[in-house]
């Protein structure tokens, strides 16, 4: 996939991705309105669907709220690349089929607005100048979940994911 990068710093927690004051919302189309609102109130206005969120360490730390993964997915975020992720957010994103990848060093190499290319299978991220950064490719188990658009689709078809 290819997309425009939207760059954030370290420790973007789930309260910044999706503020607690909107947690009573359940409809995805309402949840997406508040994407990253506590980190950048202008984000939902300036974000173009298909964009790639790039962040530093510990993206999605904090609360278990699935709203954080839902809001990014529904807003049209194509993928999230970060130095590391909060683990519950990581699971929630995979379960919803929102691609994400750990890419060490990405925060300093990508600038806001860069067009970047991401290959989830190989874990390679290509920068506008052609430079390549090697991320940590997802395991086949997780890629399988993402390929199916998340665990919901797998369960719908009666499939139960089994360990590697």
């Amino acid at each position: 996939m290819r997309g425009r990068a939207y760059v954030f710093g370290d420790n973007i927690d789930t309260d910044q991705i999706y503020p607690g004051r909107y947690l009573h919302l359940v409809k995805p189309e309402e949840i997406k309105e508040h994407v990253l609102e506590n980190a950048d109130p202008t984000f939902s206005r300036r974000f173009q669907p298909g964009g790639i969120v790039v962040a530093g360490r510990n993206f999605g730390c904090g609360s278990s709220r699935e709203h954080a993964a839902i809001t990014l997915k529904e807003a049209g975020v194509a993928a999230v690349l970060a130095e590391s992720f909060g683990r519950i957010f990581f699971r929630n994103a995979i379960n919803l089929g929102l691609p994400l990848m750990i890419v060490k060093g990405i925060r300093d190499k990508v600038k806001e607005g860069d067009e970047i290319e991401v290959d989830l299978e190989s874990g390679v991220v290509t920068l506008p100048d052609g430079c390549k950064i090697q991320g940590e490719p997802l395991s086949q188990y997780i890629l399988n979940l993402i390929r199916h658009g998340g665990i919901k689709n797998l369960y719908k078809s009666g499939y139960r994911p089994k360990p590697e």
Binding site: G62, S64, E66, A69, I88, R91, N92, G150, K152, Y155
Partner: peptide
């Protein structure tokens, strides 16, 4: 709930998840 880590102090394995995980 992310603070499910609390129950480790009772010698249990306690962990937090999101909605879809819990539904599974």
């Amino acid at each position: 709930d992310s603070h499910t880590t609390t129950h480790g102090v009772f010698g249990a394995f306690g962990t937090g998840v999101g909605a879809t995980d819990l539904a599974t």
